[in-house]
Amino acid sequence: MIGQLGEQQMWEAFQSGDEEAYTTIYRLHVKAMYRYGMSLVPVSEAFVFDCIHDVFTELWLKRKRLTVPDNVRFYLLKSLKVRILHLLKRKERVHLPLSEEDYDELWSEPSSVDHFVFNEELYNRQDLVRKLIDQLSPRQQEALRLRYEENMDYGEIASLLSINRQSAQNLVFRAVEKLRTWML
């Protein structure tokens, strides 16, 4: 993986209009953004991917006005969280447009307090998820580990577990659904 300094140089290249750097930033962070987005609230995958794409669209449009963040992943995760929460609030209050203050906050650089709160929330959530995963069956734990830690596709999981692809998908899906239910 690219180091922090390399990511910042890539960010600068993206700001200069380098589409390859933009695509690389997307590829480096989309999985983490997806996992984080899905962990925030019980919403559909399509909603999370729409929010991720909204974030990257805005990044491209505003690239020349953005500063280089100290931590690119943190910046992207915070932007995603703000986008998701904004859209969820908007669904509750359809008549309220995005205010200029909300819009500025969406792209502002996070403060050290934001970093601390974010890291604390992330640690607490990770600890809870680890404890809940321990309550799953060993087979479900293995399937989740293969899918999300080893980044294997369902065909590879099926082969390792000696089951068919659909059974591998079902095993992962049911484990994730059980975790979501427990987290609510």
Rank of each mutant, 00 (worst) to 15 (best):
R93N: 14
S159E: 11
F118Q: 10
E20M: 08
G6L: 04
I84V: 15
K78S: 03
Q9P: 08
L76M: 03
P69Y: 05
L144K: 01
L96W: 06
P138S: 06
T67L: 15
F116R: 12
P69H: 06
L28D: 09
F56C: 12
I163L: 04
R165M: 00
K62H: 15
Q135H: 12
P69C: 06
V72F: 02
Q15G: 02
M152P: 09
A46E: 10
Q135F: 11
L96K: 08
F56H: 11
M152H: 12
L171C: 06
I84F: 06
Y103H: 12
K178N: 07
L146P: 07
G155L: 12
R35A: 10
T24M: 10
S44E: 10
H95T: 06
V68P: 01
S39N: 11
F74I: 06
N151C: 15
L179K: 03
E121D: 13
E12A: 11
A158N: 01
A168N: 00
W60P: 02
A168V: 03
E19H: 01
R165V: 02
R93Q: 13
Q141S: 01
L80H: 00
Q169N: 08
S79K: 06
D70G: 15
L160T: 08
M38G: 04
A32I: 12
G155R: 12
T57W: 07
R139K: 14
K64Q: 15
R174T: 02
F116A: 07
R90G: 13
S44R: 10
N119K: 14
G17V: 08
V117G: 04
M152F: 11
L40R: 07
C51N: 06
W182S: 08
L87R: 09
E45S: 14
E156L: 07
I25C: 07
Y148W: 06
D153P: 05
R130A: 13
N170H: 08
L122T: 14
F173L: 10
I25Y: 01
W182C: 05
N71E: 15
R139L: 14
L85Q: 07
G6N: 05
M33V: 09
G17D: 10
R165L: 00
D153R: 07
L87F: 10
D104C: 03
D54C: 01
L76R: 01
L85T: 02
I25M: 08
A168Q: 01
L40V: 10
Q9I: 14
A13Q: 03
R73C: 14
F118K: 09
T181I: 13
D134T: 03
L184M: 02
S99C: 05
I133D: 07
S79N: 04
Y103E: 14
V117T: 12
E101F: 08
H53C: 12
V176S: 09
S167C: 09
M38T: 11
G17A: 11
A21E: 03
R63P: 04
L66S: 01
V30N: 10
G3A: 09
V172R: 06
N151L: 15
V117F: 08
N119V: 13
L5H: 11
G155E: 13
Y103P: 00
A143L: 00
S137G: 14
I133L: 12
I133Y: 04
L146W: 11
F47V: 09
L40C: 02
